[in-house]
């Protein structure tokens, strides 16, 4: 988190620490990071008090808040905005978690096309591993090695989303939940998935993805760098699925 913030300052971005509790607490927490006193003085660092704990995040409204803040940072001469957000109090209940996961995916789509980046901080001691995995799998990267796969917005407009990692029986429920929560946007009426970083997928997981596309009446297009998915599609003889094989693997 410290590195994330100081790196932002170094490249001319405005940085923010969004958390709960009184502003003075947030300021004290931020000041613990080297260089932040000076940054606070000149408006390069800010604290953002979040609404009461227990609240259910409203996904699109929260994305608008960050979009406006990014525009303000650019107007003030910064190169962009990066925010570290304390997120544990927003994911304690199932309803909160569901809304937050949808928000995560929405903000992912926003940051794919704007000079905005964010890092969510979770209290691993407080949250169950299952909750952390449900959130971590929606991020392009995380420090959770146990998460088998990642499903998130793509930086390229061409794709509905990006799928990487390994999918098998161990990720079955997590993958289904992630697909439902992200509701990846269609591209030209198709669900176009950048799966070039997908190292493994079993036939049940591929059918799960296919099922998701079918329920949305969209043909599935999979861009892959491994031959496995094409072999599965061939054997299962499923219609409305196209697999495009690329030479290069994308991490």
């Amino acid at each position: 988190m410290r590195e994330f913030l100081t790196e932002g300052l170094a490249i001319g971005e405005r940085v923010g620490w969004a958390g709960f509790g009184p502003v003075t607490r947030l300021v004290d927490q931020l000041l613990a990071v080297e260089g932040m006193a000076e940054a606070l003085d000149r408006g390069a660092a800010q604290v953002v008090p979040l609404s009461a704990t227990g609240a259910v995040i409203e996904p699109s409204a929260q994305v608008r808040v960050y979009a406006d803040a990014t525009a303000a940072a650019l107007a003030a001469g910064f190169t962009g905005l990066r925010v570290v957000a304390e997120s544990t109090p927003l994911v304690r209940t199932a309803t909160q978690l569901d809304a937050f996961a949808r928000y995560e995916h929405l903000v992912d789509q926003y940051l794919a096309g704007h000079p905005f980046s964010s890092m969510c901080v979770y209290d691993g001691a407080e949250l169950a591993q299952g909750v952390i995995e449900q959130l971590a799998c929606l991020h392009p990267t995380s420090n959770q090695d146990s998460v088998g796969f990642h499903l998130h917005a793509s930086t390229a407009e061409f794709f509905s989303g990006t799928l990487s990692g390994e999918l098998d029986l161990s990720t079955a429920d997590l993958f289904t939940t992630a697909l439902d929560r992200t509701a990846l946007p269609l591209r030209g009426m198709e669900l176009v998935v950048d799966a070039r970083g997908l190292d493994f997928i079993d036939h049940r997981s591929l059918l799960r993805l296919f099922d998701h596309a079918r329920r949305r009446s969209a043909p599935l297009v999979l861009h892959v760098s491994r031959t496995g998915p094409a072999r599965i599609v061939n054997v299962l003889d499923v219609a409305d699925v196209r697999v495009e094989l690329h030479q290069e693997r994308v991490a």
């Binding site: 036939h203 049940r204 059918l207 099922d211 072999r231 061939n234 054997v235 299962l236 003889d237 499923v238």
Partner: peptide, 19 residues
């Protein structure tokens, strides 16, 4: 048995036979 498009139950052995 070839997989039917409507049938999403396990096709593991079919996969193994093919591979």
């Amino acid at each position: 048995r070839p997989a039917k498009p409507s049938d999403n139950s396990g096709r593991g052995l079919l996969m193994i036979n093919d591979l």
